[in-house]
């Protein structure tokens, strides 16, 4: 654990508050629809009364199809969206009223490893860490160290990001998140689109974070095996509604299923990989 993370944890206002406390959280988006009229808008519910809590150090996976609301949930917890109803707190800090305190505690890895493509991994990590108050003296040794931990080759640190594979870029994204020592780590489909080897490496690193850091991890994924192996509890999010959050075994027992896929089908009435309704395509745009 780094000094910064230690300081962040010590500064937590309410030691007894859950790491993540989401209550009746809802979000809908509007989009102009000329088919309905010149100034008409269509509304789509991205999250509908979602409630759950996470304890410090816990890893929870949220399973859901594309457009189920996983990314909206992560964006709300990252203070990048404003909810329409309900509340979300990180260690007792409200994500709307106390957004800056939340930002000190949270970081995120999303499906797209977004960087300035012409800049190198070291440069991208360097400027990003300044936003968290870390000086160049503090990061001079830390950046190579963290890049080494995620398995990034030292001789490629000065190459532009655009010359790196997607797997490599995702490792740098993990390093960026870890560099700021987040107390809550939000992983939004971190392995989607990676080749099998990169996927395993990223998953292995998530396991390492779990064991060596005092981080609480929310993992949004549509990889059933990933959810089951990495998380203590698994949630099913379908069309904005969180249907259950339980340990994988309990989830299977509850729905009389032998696999998580069957449990998902029993809970939602739909096959896990099916995106067969027009409504789902539409929902993907928003959520």
């Amino acid at each position: 654990m780094t000094n910064i993370q230690q300081a962040a944890i010590e500064a937590l206002p309410r030691r007894t508050a859950p790491a993540v406390d989401v209550r009746d959280l809802s979000k809908e988006f509007r989009r102009r629809d000329r088919k309905l009229g010149r100034f008409a808008h269509r509304k789509r519910v991205a999250l509908d009364g979602v409630s759950f809590t996470m304890q410090r150090g816990e890893t929870v996976a949220i399973l859901g199809q594309n457009g189920s609301g996983k990314s909206t949930l992560v964006r709300l917890l990252s203070t990048l969206l404003l909810p329409d109803g309900g509340s979300a707190e990180i260690f007792g800090h409200d994500v709307v009223r106390d957004a800056r305190a939340v930002r000190r505690l949270v970081n995120r890895v999303s499906v797209e490893a977004s960087f300035f493509k012409k800049m190198s991994s070291s440069e991208n990590l360097g400027y990003a860490s300044r936003y968290y108050g870390m000086t160049s003296r503090q990061t001079r040794d830390l950046i190579p160290q963290i890049l080494g931990r995620v398995g990034f080759p030292p001789d490629r640190r000065d190459e532009p990001m655009e010359s790196l594979s997607r797997g490599m870029q995702q490792k740098v994204a993990l390093a960026r998140a870890l560099l700021t020592s987040p107390v809550v780590l939000l992983l939004d489909e971190p392995t989607t689109g990676l080749d099998p080897r990169s996927k395993l490496e990223v998953q292995e690193f998530i396991r390492e974070i779990r064991s060596s850091h005092d981080s609480t991890i929310l993992l949004c994924t549509h990889d059933l095996a990933e959810a089951e192996t990495l998380a203590e509890r698994v949630g099913i999010l379908d069309r904005g509604q969180l249907l259950a959050v339980e340990p994988a075994d309990a989830l299977r027992r509850r729905f009389g299923a032998t696999t998580l896929e069957e449990a998902f089908f029993a809970a939602t009435g739909r096959a896990f990989e099916a995106d067969d309704e027009e409504d789902d395509e539409d929902r993907e745009v928003f959520a």
């Binding site: 964006r75 990252s78 203070t79 990048l80 800056r100 930002r103 000190r104 949270v106 970081n107 995120r108 999303s110 797209e112 977004s114 960087f115 300035f116 493509k117 990003a128 936003y131 968290y132 108050g133 960026r176």
Partner: peptide
């Protein structure tokens, strides 16, 4: 365009100093 905007806006840097 680069996709970094969300990472910048979720950092604990005040908008004034940004």
């Amino acid at each position: 365009w680069e996709g970094t905007i969300e990472y910048t806006f979720m950092a604990p840097l005040s908008r004034a100093m940004h």
